[in-house]
Computed example of a mutant assay.
Amino acid sequence: MVDVRVTYDQQVDAAYIYFTDSQTRKEVSRMYPCDPVEVGGMINLDFDGEGRLVGIEVLAASSKLPQHLLDAAERLDVEDS
Results as ranks from 00 to 15, higher is better:
53 L>Y: 09
31 M>N: 07
77 D>C: 06
73 A>T: 09
72 A>L: 10
56 I>Y: 04
61 A>S: 05
81 S>K: 12
67 Q>E: 13
52 R>K: 10
26 K>L: 07
61 A>C: 10
45 L>Y: 14
2 V>Q: 15
71 D>W: 05
67 Q>T: 08
36 P>S: 14
42 M>S: 14
77 D>W: 09
79 E>C: 04
48 D>K: 00
27 E>H: 02
29 S>F: 10
80 D>P: 10
32 Y>F: 10
52 R>C: 10
10 Q>L: 08
71 D>H: 04
22 S>E: 15
13 D>G: 05
59 L>C: 04
69 L>T: 02
62 S>H: 05
30 R>L: 08
74 E>M: 14
2 V>G: 08
61 A>R: 03
62 S>Q: 06
50 E>K: 09
81 S>H: 06
15 A>L: 06
11 Q>P: 02
10 Q>A: 12
73 A>D: 05
21 D>V: 15
21 D>L: 11
65 L>Q: 04
1 M>L: 14
74 E>F: 08
28 V>W: 03
63 S>T: 05
10 Q>D: 07
16 Y>R: 15
50 E>N: 09
27 E>V: 04
71 D>E: 12
41 G>N: 02
27 E>I: 03
37 V>P: 05
8 Y>E: 09
54 V>Y: 00
34 C>A: 13
54 V>W: 00
60 A>T: 00
77 D>A: 08
63 S>Q: 05
15 A>I: 10
43 I>H: 01
59 L>R: 05
35 D>F: 01
74 E>W: 02
64 K>D: 00
38 E>L: 03
72 A>C: 06
27 E>K: 06
33 P>W: 03
5 R>M: 12
28 V>T: 14
60 A>R: 01
31 M>E: 15
48 D>T: 00
50 E>D: 11
66 P>H: 08
13 D>V: 07
40 G>C: 09
28 V>N: 07
7 T>V: 15
40 G>R: 01
59 L>E: 10
6 V>N: 10
22 S>Q: 15
70 L>E: 02
31 M>A: 14
48 D>M: 02
75 R>H: 08
31 M>T: 15
67 Q>V: 07
50 E>T: 04
72 A>M: 08
